[in-house]
Simulated assay, not measured.
Amino acid sequence: MPARTAETGRPPRPAVAFALRWRTAAVGLLAACHPLPAAAVTLFTALLAAAAGRSLPGAAATVGAVAAGQLSVGWCNDRADLRRDLAAGRRDKPLVAGTVRPAAVTRAAALALLVCVPLSLAGGLLAGAVHLVCVAAAWAYNLKLKGTAVSWLPYALAFGLLPAFVTLGLPGAPWPPPWLTAAAALLGAGAHFANVLPDIADDLATGVVGLPQRLGARTSAALAGLLVLASAAALVVGPPGRVTAYGWGLLAATAATVLLGGRRPAGRLPFRAVMAVAGADVLLLVVQLRRS
């Protein structure tokens, strides 16, 4: 039955009905791209590019490439999970709720991936190849590795290589320092364990048995905390020179946040704790790169 307007009770005119359908689909498409994680990674890249001294055009291309890559990964994730989300009754997912069609999400993921390629290569062949490896790792997680014992590996690889994508676009194409790569990889692995925690029961019911599902919520929460703490430690003690007061404070705050998040391993608190620590890590990283 056609939708009816609240004012007249009659079906809306075709143009109005089209606009309403388009708006609903656009909202659904936005929600299906996992907007908060995508925005967080894109913002991190923008801050890193600015701190590393990338030119405005280079920084814009780098940030655009990461944004397009994140969009493609988010849409790919929701499309790949549709069958499992339907089985689990995940009405919070746009595809399950019917606010956007599967074909539209598939097309959006493909288009974002196509846009990502030239933007990635704009910073140079090596830098572009590194970022495309990051995106390929994320797609491999969505399509295959999510339900395996190496489910953590795409996160560690993609996060660990992201700083290299930024620095390889600088004159001379320098690689980032090892402590930065290690800190990013540890943070990515920790984010994976924390992000999976709220959905472990649904994942097991639908046959997803990645490493966090195999270890269980309590062990995964503890491991997420240790990985995030190790990431913060790498950022604090890795760079040359004396550790600042902010660095020691970050380590103490990270330890406290990890302990707080571990008290409720099955909820969203551990993931929010990881995101809070990641934000503090980014501030420290920007300061350190500006000083170096």
Score class of each variant (00 low, 15 high):
D281N: 15
P177M: 10
G262P: 09
G190R: 00
C76S: 15
G216L: 00
F159P: 02
A194Q: 00
P198T: 07
L56K: 11
V243I: 14
D92G: 12
F159V: 02
D203H: 04
L56A: 15
L186E: 04
T254L: 07
L260R: 15
P265L: 02
N195D: 13
G128N: 03
T106V: 14
P171N: 01
A232Y: 00
G123S: 15
V66G: 02
T244L: 08
G147T: 05
A25Q: 11
L95E: 02
P163E: 02
L162W: 08
L260D: 12
A129R: 09
A182Y: 06
L211Q: 03
R242F: 13
V117I: 15
L20W: 07
R218I: 09
L187V: 12
D281L: 07
R268P: 10
P212E: 02
D203W: 04
V115R: 06
G98H: 09
G89K: 05
T5Q: 08
L180K: 00
W75G: 08
L215S: 05
V150R: 13
L204P: 12
V277T: 04
A184R: 02
G216T: 07
A184Y: 06
G249R: 02
W152A: 10
A40V: 13
A232N: 02
W75F: 11
R4Q: 13
A158F: 12
T62L: 14
A205F: 06
P57Y: 10
A233P: 05
D78G: 07
